[in-house]
Design a protein around this nucleic acid. Sequence first.
DNA 1: CGCTCGAACGTTAGCGCTAACGGCCCTTTC
DNA 2: GAAAGGGCCGTTAGCGCTAACGTTCGAGCG
Lengths: 339, 339
Amino acid sequence: MSAAGARPVSIFDVAKRAGVSHQTVSRVINDAPQVADATRAKVKAAISELGYRPNRSARTLAGGAVRSVTVFTFDTALYGTAETLRGIEDGAAAAGFTVLISVLDPDQTYTDDDILSRLSHDGAPAIVIAHDDTTTRARRILREARPGAVVATGDDKLSREPDAADWLVSLDDRAVAERATRYLLSMGHRTVHYLAMPGRARRQDGWADALAEVGVEAPEPVQSGWTIGSAAEAAAALVADPDVTAIMCGNDDLAFGVLHAAHRAGRSIPGDLSVVGCDDSPLAAFNVPPLTTIDLDFRGVGRGAFELLHAKLEGRERPRPVWRSPELLVRETSGPPRH
Amino acid sequence: MSAAGARPVSIFDVAKRAGVSHQTVSRVINDAPQVADATRAKVKAAISELGYRPNRSARTLAGGAVRSVTVFTFDTALYGTAETLRGIEDGAAAAGFTVLISVLDPDQTYTDDDILSRLSHDGAPAIVIAHDDTTTRARRILREARPGAVVATGDDKLSREPDAADWLVSLDDRAVAERATRYLLSMGHRTVHYLAMPGRARRQDGWADALAEVGVEAPEPVQSGWTIGSAAEAAAALVADPDVTAIMCGNDDLAFGVLHAAHRAGRSIPGDLSVVGCDDSPLAAFNVPPLTTIDLDFRGVGRGAFELLHAKLEGRERPRPVWRSPELLVRETSGPPRH
DNA sequence: CGCTCGAACGTTAGCGCTAACGGCCCTTTC
DNA sequence: GAAAGGGCCGTTAGCGCTAACGTTCGAGCG
């Protein structure tokens, strides 16, 4: 244990104590072969006696294996991004990686340089959780600068790019929204309205596709912001309309906003109005009434994103996805229309 | 702009281009005085022409000013910790700091070395968001190793330590819970029950103190986990008891769990049962019915934590707190008891 | 007019680590 | 029994930056 203030113990201190060269110590801490067992044991003993811990900056500088990722996101507090981040952290911790966070303000415009200088060094690996325009732009900038070391999650409009398979880790948001919409249609609703969050274009596509399939013209989607309050406001007119019997929401938070607005408008759930969310956030199952939604494994996606990045860095094959597949959870905010 | 794959531009490349020494470039990027305006301009031009961006690892290694913080937390997805993290990130970004995340698993036991080796280098600064035993332990380990560079938020049992003022950034959780309990008492409830989350001992203290003030013996607090589900389960017996008319919850998530359990038990809110949360999470205002709770400015606390750390690193005075003071928000889950 | 002094730079020496290479010694092989 | 081959370890040279000290040169002074 190095005393506070004193110069931290370095690889040379360990080397002297163990009676070997500093390079041998380096070999031991990097699990390199070519070290005799006896020597290895001696070095490890010296390491723990002195409380030596490698300096990550020095390792990075000296050009060893990469051991950090920078995660770009626009909000660490939203359920989806928070869980994705958590998944990334899980994977990173298991691999001995350090995770750096860089939060991008959606209302700000960043230059290429603004984005790139947030990396710990030129060409450092990054994961972008892209759900809005700002993060999508950041993703493009980063990928241009370092195609081999940047992956992304999310489902913005640009995920349709041809090479997306190479760097995108994502659930099939289109299919997910399509399934939920079909479910509502199957309950007998004439049509389904859509409350859209910023970005996430593919969910909206899925909703539109499901309607097109049965020959129903899609009503104009209603645009909401990311907050519950903005959803309640955006949905006010929708819930006031007695002809509206089913609303599909971009995510659970928006659905809670709709539920709130519906309550204020005096409409009963699910009798007058069916509401379906997306994400299965922690509250969905415990809301009163419990929210019908789709379980999305964001944490798994985050882990998958890290693993893809890790594989790319080590030149390995793309690993197989490891997340749960989405599942429609029918609870108590949806049902057949009354009339 | 450095081409992908090619060696990134260094301070020497800039120096050559500008016709100065590398040290002059260093002075320019560090805003040091002693550089003629004309030279400074020349160097800045070279920097932008070449797309030079300083290597953070090299700067750290060379012993320049500290430019990163490691944040220790046990869950990045919980509302309180997520918002605190966000506040830290805000402050850090403004000061040009890099934020590293280190998530600690509450179910795991870490050695001193496990914790310390998560820092980017020996003695790197850290902020601990301490709400449970694991993070509290981490806080102690880190502070012992580097008292000058570790601050914490949260309100665990150990925040009563004598020197806490020096490193703790925290809301007065005791007063907050006391105020909420007093409010319930003032509505005519004979007593108030408490649903406790892990850690956060001071909130429980505040509740107990409020009861003691009016000479009511505090009922046994009910212990919950962090999840809404665990709260619903833990509160099942409580809500089934018709003598229980008011429950104070450790945070909003627990309150949602109680609301859910109460609904299942067929008790009406707030007629049969008053429920008060704590945190004012985004959903509280939009829940049906809207949740009575206390607004806590976690983001402000996070910013305050970063600013305290920053001040310590630069040897400045402790800055004044900058967060909103807590406020009781009486909404629709609380009221006078029916009988 | 020589001197001091300070502004404005340059030079040198590390920070702690890894890569690359070199050297020693003990086997193995024909 | 000499050559070839490895296993094991040491030496050297950086990575990109900053700290500390040196140097130059012109202004200001008596």
